[in-house]
């Protein structure tokens, strides 16, 4: 495991500049809400549908142009398959129960630069296909696919999230106050000079500089008190994004380019820190208090029962 330097290098860049910069490049995967369907009692197949969003989180615009786009799916056993994206829809029927990771890639040449837009997200599938998933269910699985995943071989450039550092008790998800570390890979190697842009639904933006080992980490900021007070278990979206320019020339679909610009986004969501509504000190105090009361009770109960002469004539040594 890599050691993180906890010095966070957060540089908040002035809002206006940032927003305009983001607006051009941001593109991310999002799961579209399932329509409650079913005509005539027939069960709907377990299809997951996804859309591509563009712009800022606040704008949340749908993108319908899937020209030159590829979607890869990596399952819990690291098997990779390619998805069909024809018809303006990204649809996928997961077979197994568990975590899958989706990778979206779209290439286009603009002004002599090849833009490779990438986005990746993790989805959890609850309903598997019983006839094909039997063996997997029998075996069961402990390890999760949330973090620390190896970069996908099919993509030259990738932003990968590592295991977050947290002070509370919930293992699975992200919460405010957690330290979220990221690493950037180019052709399988860690890049130590790429910065990370973070933007949140509530409007908080930041650019993160890497540490000596190339790890980009930041503490997820707390949302305003006003919102957390109202709803303690709310969640918020955020996008982290990194871009990387390569001096490379070539021809893509008949168009020549003299540089490549990779941009990868990870759509994430986080909740309000459990530490906001739980107390560890009180937890310890309760446990220790119970221990004290219980052991004192036992001690006095035993003392009451013990008769004096035995102490004189028995000796535990």
């Amino acid at each position: 495991m890599r050691m993180f330097t906890f010095k966070l290098k957060i540089a908040v860049i002035s809002m206006c500049m940032c927003v305009s910069l983001f607006a051009q490049d941001s593109l991310w995967l999002d799961e579209s809400k399932k329509k409650s369907c079913c005509s005539g009692g027939e069960k709907a197949p377990n299809i997951k549908e996804f859309v591509i969003k563009k712009g800022t989180l606040q704008e949340n615009k749908k993108e319908h142009d899937f020209k030159n786009a590829v979607v890869y799916v990596r399952d819990m056993d690291h098997a990779v398959s390619e998805l069909n994206v024809t018809g303006g829809k990204i649809a996928f029927t997961p077979i197994h129960k568990g975590g899958y990771r989706l990778y979206f890639e779209q290439k286009s040449v603009q002004e002599g630069v090849l833009h490779v837009n990438l986005s990746s997200m993790r989805i959890h599938n609850k309903e598997g296909n019983i006839s094909q998933t039997l063996l997997k269910e029998v075996r069961g699985k402990t390890n999760d696919s949330h973090y620390d995943q190896k970069p996908l071989a099919q993509l030259p450039f990738e932003l990968v999230m590592e295991r977050p550092i947290r002070k509370h008790h919930i293992n699975c998800c992200l919460y405010s106050g957690d330290i979220a570390p990221f690493t950037v890979y180019y052709k399988g190697k860690v890049q130590k000079d790429v910065s990370l842009r973070v933007s949140m639904e509530s409007g908080w933006n930041a650019t993160i500089q890497p540490d000596d080992e190339g790890v980009l980490s930041f503490e997820i900021p707390r949302s305003t008190y006003a919102t957390t007070e109202k709803e303690k278990k709310r969640s918020e979206k955020m996008i982290v994004e990194a871009s990387y320019d390569v001096n490379e020339s070539g021809v893509y679909k008949g168009e020549a380019y003299h540089g490549v610009r990779y941009v990868m986004s990870l759509p994430l969501s986080f909740g309000a820190s459990p530490l906001e509504y739980e107390s560890q000190v009180l937890g310890f105090a309760t446990a220790i208090g119970v221990m004290l009361v219980f052991s004192l009770g036992l001690y006095y109960n035993r003392r009451r029962k013990r008769k004096t002469p035995k102490e004189i004539y028995f000796d535990e040594e």
Partner: peptide, 18 residues
């Protein structure tokens, strides 16, 4: 990880159970 020692105040059920 000692972080499972806590009392959760977010709801009455959580409070009671934790």
């Amino acid at each position: 990880h000692f972080n499972q020692f806590y009392i959760d105040f977010s709801s009455k059920t959580d409070l009671v159970m934790t």
